[in-house]
Design a protein around this nucleic acid. Structure first.
Lengths: 210, 210, 210, 210
DNA sequence: GTCTAATCGAGACGGTACGTCTCGTCTTCAC
DNA sequence: GTGAAGACGAGACGTACCGTCTCGATTAGAC
């Protein structure tokens, strides 16, 4: 962004409204057509913008969709429901609700698929979506520590890996439930899942099978 | 399959070799090109087969890729490593190994993405891949029950849902770790994940927090 | 043709009805689809015959259409209307009537077009259609000589060339009028044409301009 | 042509060179392959143009070939050889020379065949080829009238029909001689044909049969 | 108030894959 | 051996998007 401005100080500036219109048009087209039938020429048409304008700002379909989808996840927030278990349930339900929306479903999985062959794209996804929402895990843990539900961070090395694991487990399970199994991640399922997850993270190893 | 044979008893029969050649060519092309650049005309060329032949057997790219990828998962089997935890770790590692292969990575996620807008395709994925591998969860539990590691099926209603949950958690976590986080699901990660999962499933609720 | 019969005296004999059915189906398809959209698979279907059978008897689309169209011209005959001029008018009207039928229009011009690049095909057309109908010119002249309307063949070398010229002028003018100009070769036109033709063939050179 | 320009004043203008390249490539391909084996993808390749460009300008093979062939006839012109008979012979010989070229032979007959099932195409042929060359007949008659070889237009209604008849007779006979009879329309043949035509048009009815 | 330069819309361009069609051949079963 | 059925390799069809390009027409800030 800055580098662009540095290079050119003159000429007509880019329309700020165009960006928003394009991203909104992308989500609209994703809902109606899905990723594979989404045409950038169609997006441009919907946004009331020339194809040239679109290509000046995004390298291609993948980059555009990542940005369009990333915005959806920004509305996630950690509710304060009084206990760690309830807080997790709340945020997982929110996550499930977003994944139930067609623009997220089609778009997210498609760019993940594309990212398997494109490291730059995977990095963009990680930065725009994953890392951005990692805050929820961190904030949840901090709040549980303040409440005394979790001990104050015993091993910093361990904990970093645990945060990743939690994220993989939560996001992975919800995505798989919703998109692969094709069943809703509803109240009951989220409750069962949260119970197993939390128990697994906090129980004593000898408490189970002895 | 049967219906096709029933309907027509005459005419030249379809070449059995062609099916295998096409599926192999599809996987080869997936490795080199990924899903989005995979062209059916190219697959036909690699398989030494006319495009017509390919379209006579599969409705399109999605159906073809589902079948090509499904075969990859048939090589999964439940190892007998002496304990439930070790068995799970073994099969999760196998699963991770398959997902590390590019033909599985690109193909699987792409068809899952497409399935978000195509119920018939999702059903095909469920039947060809998910249900087919569900056997691993069932067999693992049965073996653990024989060993006495798990109680002999206490609640039949509950247990069916638990099998689904386990599958969603295992498959989801490994997929997310591998494809989204972009880090390997190696020995250490699988060990940590299995520990949390098993503990969550077997620990007493009061053993952890109370 | 003959050699085929000679070579095989055993096995199931060819269905004689099939030939007729195929030629009739070809004309039917020509009416509905025209030459360029005529598919041999469709002709076989209409004739209730396998594609194999069709290809055993004709080398391809062109040969088949020539035979199918040639049959149409066999119904031409020279009427006896009392004078040479009236006889010519009669036969030209018959010719125009055949060219007004869609199976003749599409088929004839198309094979003529193909024949421009295929000498064997042109020879087949000449033998099956042109030479076959040349009889009409010869018979008309003979009848006119019997009536005394024309002198008894003065120059044999010249006359052969004249027959060809007459045929080219008659067939050419009717075809051009019908297919290129797109106007009907009706009673009035045929009368005007015949008058010019006959006058040109019989008038004294000095009768016109000098 | 004009309407297109009027409708859109914006966007990248169409390449003028492309039209010429495509028509030339069409004629080249007609010579080598004939109409039925002429592939638009091949024409595009030869013209160094994308298939899209070709389809943007012509609706299909027929329209393209009509335009490609029509250009060939524009080189016809009425020579001044001193007398009406000699002028006609000259222009008929030119016409025969064009029809001796393979690009004209294949193309012209094929589109005429197609036009039997497509009124718009016939109209295009009439406008692009027939009407365009009708000028030769009109100019020839005018010149003959100036010379005193023909009386100054006695009956306007009659004459219009006579022009059509002359055109049908000339074009029809040459086409039939060249393409159907498969013999050259050489000096001798043209002389004989012209003699009959002119005599038929100018002789007194009573001069022949009495 | 020019001048200057990057923006904008529109749409044509060379490519490439799509999924369908027809070709003429080949393979099988039934008679 | 013939005939019906239909799969086969081949390749053109006409369409749709791709991402690039060429236009003339706006816009701004720099002068």
């Amino acid at each position: 962004m800055q580098s662009r401005r540095t290079a050119s100080r003159t000429g007509r500036p880019r329309s700020a409204a165009a960006d928003a219109a394009i991203l909104a048009a992308t989500r609209e087209a994703l809902v109606e057509l899905g990723w594979s039938k989404l045409a950038l020429s169609d997006v441009a048409l919907r946004a009331g913008v020339a194809k040239t304008t679109l290509y000046r700002r995004w390298a291609g379909k993948n980059e555009l969709v990542v940005d369009a989808v990333a915005e959806l996840f920004d509305e996630l927030e950690l509710p304060d429901r009084g206990s760690l278990a309830a807080d997790i349930e709340g945020v997982v339900l929110q996550f499930a609700a977003i994944l139930a929306r067609p623009e997220a479903r089609s778009g997210l999985m498609a760019v993940v698929a594309e990212a398997t062959r494109d490291d730059a794209l995977r990095e963009r996804i990680r930065a725009s979506i994953v890392d951005r929402q990692m805050r929820l895990v961190l904030e949840g843990r901090a709040r549980a520590q303040r409440r005394g539900e979790l001990p104050p961070e015993p091993d910093p090395t361990e904990s970093s890996r645990t945060v990743d694991l939690i994220f993989d487990m939560v996001a992975g399970a919800v995505v798989h439930r919703t998109l692969v199994s094709g069943k809703p991640a509803d109240q009951a399922w989220v409750h069962g899942f949260t119970r197993v997850l939390l128990l697994g993270l906090t129980a004593q190893p000898d408490g189970g099978t002895a």
